[in-house]
Write a protein that binds this DNA or RNA. Sequence first.
RNA 1: GCCCCCAUCGUCUAGUGGCCUAGGAUACCGGCUUUUCAUGCCGGCGACAGGGGUUCGAGUCCCCUUGGGGGUGCCA
Length: 501
Amino acid sequence: MTANDANSIRVRFAPSPTGYLHIGGARTVLFNWLVARRASGTFVLRIEDTDRTRHIEDSVQKICDDLRWLGLDWDEGPEVGGDVGPYFQSERLAIYNEHLQRLLESGDAYYAFETPAELDAMREAAKTAKSNISYARPDPLPTVEEGVAAKAAGTKVVVRFKMPGTDITVVDDILGEVTLAADQLEDFIIQKGDGFPTYHFACVADDALMKITHVLRGQEHLMNTPKHVAMQRALGFDTPHYAHMPVIFNMDGSKMSKRDKEKAIKRGEAPPEIDVHDFRLAGYLPEAVLNFIALLGWSPGEDRERFALDEMTSLFSIERVGKTNAKFDRDKLVAFNTDWATRASSERLLAAFKDYLSVNESSLCGADDAALARALKASEGFRTFPDVVKKTGFLFKADDAIAYDAKAVKKVLAKNDGAGYAMLEHLLPKLEALPDFSADAIEALLAATCEEREAKLGQVAQPIRVAITGSTVSPSIHESLEWLGKGATLARIGRCLAHRG
RNA sequence: GCCCCCAUCGUCUAGUGGCCUAGGAUACCGGCUUUUCAUGCCGGCGACAGGGGUUCGAGUCCCCUUGGGGGUGCCA
């Protein structure tokens, strides 16, 4: 069976280009992608750019980049094309108009002339009247001719879909049957005053025309579905399988919104990661992000929870997607990342680390692969990539660029009448005299020093650490010194001593 | 207001009438390992929202209440 068989599964992810890919959107893509790959079906990427006021430049590029970073590819869509394109809704206006005409001719849609202000007033009135429906269908309905004439005269007109007046039941693969009463369903706009279709209409037309068989989307779309089903019936389209997934929230129960970042900055806090790109910048592994978000609303059972994309693909099924909204627990994500980083091959880790440095325009970008790989190795057990930089960054700096952390200096060097400084003074000539500046030789020297001074290793190692890194964090002291080299080690200790007082 | 969806440890979840004195993960607490920061290992704390039914038996089925979420746009 090939992906083009008439009965094969086709799914889609249809973002609107309003910025980076949101982490919740990533979960939606993932589940769709999993359904497609599991069934050897087709995954379509479609851009819903029908709202010109919200369009943000470069969004499509960014979304594509984020998907690539996650390792989720698409079979049809931007950059790759396909047989049922175009895949940008803004390029499909002629197609929408054709189907809109059918609706107009069959009487399932009609022109409407209310202005936005008038509609606002109607909504207000409905509110005070405690009515379910705010839009009163005109009686008699405007004729097509009246609509065309009004348009020709330059009046902004919209087209509304005429709901059938019956209850509508949606069959959802996650939620089961959901019925909405006729008196809850009012006529809605399918073509805006600017001639663009609304989401409802474009989505229904495209899903049908692109032969989408399964629609997996967020639960916020559940109430839209009866409208979509009604249009499908009027248009003679098949209704695809629907599956509405639970929503992802912040730990405090609020929505995960891009605005959270600005709010946090205003409060002087670090901005939280919200978009996929944020997690990339923050030094997470896409494997960990994917693994973590897969578990938000889905579980394969049997207490299994660590798996890569290929394992997820064979484990996934819509039947096992839950109904309960989830909260995004960053602590657990960090734990997953730590685990994935520990288990990743050195090649994989190096590639991911270089990507991290690159997107952050880090000064370590210029370092060679061997040095970076060594930094990774020396940082084993790190949680996210910033930890690696924090731990090994001193190796990539000039000797005189080391800044001393005041707390570290006080605690390790200045305390006890400058015991740390004294230790450095004691150590400096010994290190200088060391013919072989290897980790083993350094270890032997430090061990001997401990014995002769009746000191613990920490009392010897910590002053050195602060002298060469400016902080109390580095890889093992032996490894650090060997790597730094004799010249830089002596220079830094000398400089540290000179800074005293 | 009206409509719809949901409800197991702080969090993510397993559980599809007896295997549940409710399992795992993460967080938290304690201990061990350790030259720093991490990691790792061991142990502990910790939940079926409440109330009615149904049944020999309910976390699992039904109803009500409460709580959370969503919809009610010329946004998607």
